[in-house]
Design a protein around this nucleic acid. Structure first.
Lengths: 231, 231
DNA sequence: AGACGACAGCTTGCATACCTTTTGGGAGTG
DNA sequence: CACTCCCAAAAGGTATGCAAGCTGTCGTCT
């Protein structure tokens, strides 16, 4: 549900307001701690407060804003605690999804591995051409594959909102280091390989290692993100 | 700080609308498949459409309604697939929480076990007096203890919304059988005991068994709810 | 100088009015 | 008899107006 950026004109003012505010928050144009008002955004977009109001409400439910009565909308500042919680949640969900997919049998493993390989290739190309947005989108797609194929729309929806938040808190900061990009590609490849082999333990381990790497790149203590310890 | 005796009146119309619609959906007064309109609810509550609209929006985000443009709000019918997804998600989250809590050490295990025991006692009393709402509330409290103590507000929030949905889909149907109540109490006791002992494997196993029991009581195939298979 | 209080400006909360879209039924036609 | 077209009723989408609440400030009193 996150990627409908360009469908603005046709889909009513509400969607436009939602995309706009969400975009501003995710890209950091609205910074954490900022207090924004409905009228402000409404005027900027040339619409009335009503659609903006609905967008605010939605974003509050998604955890990006906090609405203070009669005061305004606070862009929730990213706390280290929230980063930790998001990464931990991602770990739990991805671990679940990977294991479930693999246990479904070798047939589907192949298909998934193919999909993963496609995204890795896209990411490699983006990396070579220094297309950061494309790289990030491919990264998102890569990880989304698991949850999209885990046959659980509820957890899939939760995961999507997690990714939104993570994009915001991490941004490109963790990718400043070119070596990090290489590492990501390599870890992704390991995951895809383990999935293709249908090896549950290796796949889960690879996912854990990858996310732990991200946690480290964010400057957090790896122990802070506990989860299932595995056989 | 002031008393909230007049809570329903003091809190705005938005909250009243939200409580009303949510209540109607959860209790089944609005049935799955019903198409309700803003004006309808607004008139019933003696307020304008605006607060009702906001309530609808919120409930859509929570997964209870689906808004069709220019048509109305559909009360999402409970599909077997959704029941399965909810139970699977609960399993994933509770398993995560229990394991994390126990790994924190014996000290906190004791405190948690005490809290669990309190709720079990409340449930036992409610059962003896045939206070079904009280029983359900204690059940909710029992399970919520895990997620509330797992130090992950994000997953905690997800879990809370899951419980809401489950209440709606299950209702009291699964409790028609008095033997089921006995089973629940016994399974809860097993969980609390394993937690007190700080035994990870036994605790997780007990949680799995309990939720699997619920799945069975709902008439679903137990294999349909896959999750981590454990050592 | 410091503290207290009233006021001005901004914000949201809710109501109301108007516009657009959807849809269901009825008249007319093949 | 079935199909199509058209229109009117109804619902949501958006805009706007007004009331109420919170903040910060400025002036006055002690």
């Amino acid at each position: 549900m996150a990627a409908k950026a360009t469908a603005s004109a046709r889909t009513g003012a509400k969607a436009r307001a939602l995309d706009f505010v969400k975009g501003q928050v995710l890209t950091g144009a609205f910074r954490g701690g900022d207090l924004i008002s409905e009228g402000e955004v409404a005027e900027a977009l040339g619409m009335s407060r009503t659609p903006v109001r609905e967008a605010f409400l939605r974003l509050e439910a998604e955890g990006l804003l906090r609405l203070y009565p009669q005061r305004g909308a606070l862009v929730i500042p990213v706390s280290p605690e929230e980063v930790r919680a998001v990464m931990e949640a991602r770990l739990v969900l991805e671990q679940f999804a990977v294991e479930k997919i693999i246990r479904r049998g070798p047939a589907s493993c192949g298909a998934i591995a193919d999909a993963l390989a496609t995204e890795i290739e896209r990411q490699r190309r983006a990396s070579a051409e220094s297309e950061l947005p494309e790289f990030l989108d491919a990264d998102r797609a890569f990880h989304t594959i698991f949850l999209d194929n885990a046959d659980n729309s509820i957890l899939g929806g939760v995961y999507a909102s997690l990714r939104d938040r993570q994009v915001r808190m991490i941004g490109e900061s963790a990718l400043r280091d070119p070596r990090r990009i290489e590492t990501i590609l390599s870890e992704h490849a390991s995951i895809a390989e383990a999935v293709r082999d249908g090896d549950v333990v290796r796949s889960v381990t690879a996912v854990r290692a990858h996310l732990t790497g991200t946690v480290l790149a964010l400057g957090l203590a790896p122990e802070s993100v506990s989860s299932f310890t595995w056989p």
